[in-house]
Design a protein around this nucleic acid. Sequence first.
DNA 1: CCTACCGATCGGTAGG
DNA 2: CCTACCGATCGGTAGG
Lengths: 210, 210
Amino acid sequence: MMETSRRREIEDVASSLFREHGYSGTSVRDIARALDIQGASLYAHVTSKQDVLWAIVERTADQFDGAADAAMARVAGQGPGPRLQALVRAHVRVVTDDIGRAGVFAHEWRSLTGERRAAIARRRDAYETRFRATIGDGVASGAFESVDPTVTAALLLTTLNGIATWYRPDGRIAPAELADACADHALRSIAAGRRAPGPGTADPEREAPR
Amino acid sequence: MMETSRRREIEDVASSLFREHGYSGTSVRDIARALDIQGASLYAHVTSKQDVLWAIVERTADQFDGAADAAMARVAGQGPGPRLQALVRAHVRVVTDDIGRAGVFAHEWRSLTGERRAAIARRRDAYETRFRATIGDGVASGAFESVDPTVTAALLLTTLNGIATWYRPDGRIAPAELADACADHALRSIAAGRRAPGPGTADPEREAPR
DNA sequence: CCTACCGATCGGTAGG
DNA sequence: CCTACCGATCGGTAGG
């Protein structure tokens, strides 16, 4: 249907602008100008600016959830290491696939208000819990260092979401290459069995605990 | 002088609001309201909204540069590992010391225009180069895995800057504790001499190179 | 999808 | 630091 594809065009253009200038830094007329129509004409297709943001955020949340579901199915029965890497790789692929939507999902969801904002906060937390749980499993089994799963999951997801702010799809780094680099980076940062820079190692900067 | 401290109050309030709602999502009257004065009264102390952003970003850039200078002086003569950890720890301390300014520096500098934006982009790049160079040294000496210094520095700094978006100063994680966790996280993610998840390891998800 | 238009709010100035 | 005010732009509506 024509209506649906026009609606998608609006969301594509809006997510790109929202990522670049922020939700409140993008006017309805900015979106319309990019589509070569009048500002008021946008309202033939959408009911409000908030509605466009909501649609983008929801659709992107679906993509992250779906990618994580598929990734976890593929590594079912395997240990925490491969499971974490699969989650990381799936996340990076969604980000590099559309840095506009991914950036909006990562940063602009705060511009939602009321129940919509609360709903997306819950979805984001549920998604983050998959990372927390996998990290917690690895810590419990001894496969990972005894890191704090909450802090580590937060650090990790911030890293992966941040990709949307600096990644250039036309640059020298291919999406699959970045996904692999991130998966290795994540596992190395957490896997047990290394020459650990623990309390025994000289570390003049360390100050806690005293 | 009274003038100076009032000016600092404005910047403090503004950086907190800018971090929370973005530069364009914060009006001059929002800043004034937080100070219990009229919107127009702000202009007795500042010449423009952009000027406030510029002052915040510049002052924060000074803090990051100064902290990195001091950290590097303290670990002079040491290897890439301790040097990288010192840089990470210094960065995290600046972030946790004032998440408002750090968040604005990390994300809102894009709202600057013209020469100011170009100038801060150059400063940010010079700062990032310190991380890139240290990582490059470690790769060259064999102390680090053969990672891409540019990608790794980008991933690392995004991680550290992202702390400003989720860290709660009144939460259960102390600043020094987070700084140490990040320094360990960074070194683990890059240090050589581990049971590497290389090409020999089973990794059904990997797809590049084919 | 357009023209014409709405009230509200924006960053900022004048004059005290 | 205040009151009063400026032109420009905001998100959105009416009616075609």
